[in-house]
Design a protein around this nucleic acid. Structure first.
Lengths: 147, 147
DNA sequence: AGGAGATATCTGCATCTGCAGATATTTTTT
DNA sequence: AAAAAATATCTGCAGATGCAGATATCTCCT
């Protein structure tokens, strides 16, 4: 049976993904955050006061996981949790001053790792890669409800 | 602070990877195997009677995880575990008849998902992608011991 | 041969994660 | 307005995973 795991694209994709997660995570651990925390911080840098479900979408983290994560981050003083006025089921998550400082401290590290991952690829290739990854993601999207 | 998580390559890489894992895993679950089991089966299709550490390298699964995984797969009758003659620390893992049949049953499903992921990309682009992913992986490799 | 160090695997443990099912609140139906 | 359905978050649970530290065996040096 002909099957070459080492040439199988989903495997290669996973391998590269795990690799960068491992390296980056190691580097930010001393700052007291893991990958998921960083994703939340990064997402909040863009749109502050986001709800859990919005954050879940932005970070690709499951809402239940995110719920617990955000609780811990709030306890650590990185974010604030405020019950929404208009919808008391919802919680608005925002960066605290400390959280923002931490996020801004990590951004350059994240960019370093992106650069390290890309190595000597030129800008055009990088852009092509970004486009390809988005395409793959879209091809795999649960279902295109062409409503 | 300018940072766009949605354009950040490591994130995109992870997202695509998780997506295909989720879909593929869902599809093979009825067969009683998860992603890791499949990786082991696939690796064994190529080089039978591999040791744990070799399998760990081939599948990117941690040796301790793999140890437990292989024990379970042996209990399920998918693989055989044989203490090596020449080195009694080592264990040779091989596909059982049943394991091989299962592996060969999954191969076409795996290829389907690869195709689904690639969508309408032509062969040249696919090959380019494969090359890029390998490049990224190499750029991130722990350390190039150019011994 | 005897011991130090390397190697292969296994076990303990602590964490992360996601699904399924609660709970609380809002919106839509009737 | 009451009931039904939808929505946002949270909790219970059970499995996967990886690191660190055992354990067993082998290799090399003296």
């Amino acid at each position: 049976m002909a099957f070459d795991l080492q040439a199988y694209l989903p495997y290669l994709l996973n391998r590269a993904a795990r690799r960068i997660v491992a390296g980056f995570t190691d580097q930010i651990r001393p700052l007291g955050v893991g990958l998921s925390e960083w994703r939340v911080l990064a997402a909040l840098l863009e749109s502050d006061a986001a709800r859990i479900d919005v954050l879940a979408l932005a970070t690709s983290i499951d809402a239940s996981t995110l719920s617990r994560l955000v609780q811990r981050m709030a306890a650590e003083g990185l974010v604030t949790r405020t019950v929404s006025e208009s919808d008391r089921r919802a919680v608005a998550i925002a960066l605290s001053t400390q959280g923002r400082a931490l996020a801004e401290q990590i951004v350059p590290i994240a960019l370093e790792w992106e650069a390290k991952m890309l190595g000597s690829l030129d800008d055009a290739t990088t852009e092509r890669l970004r486009q390809l990854l988005r395409q793959l993601d879209q091809n795999l999207a649960p279902h295109e409800a062409t409503s």
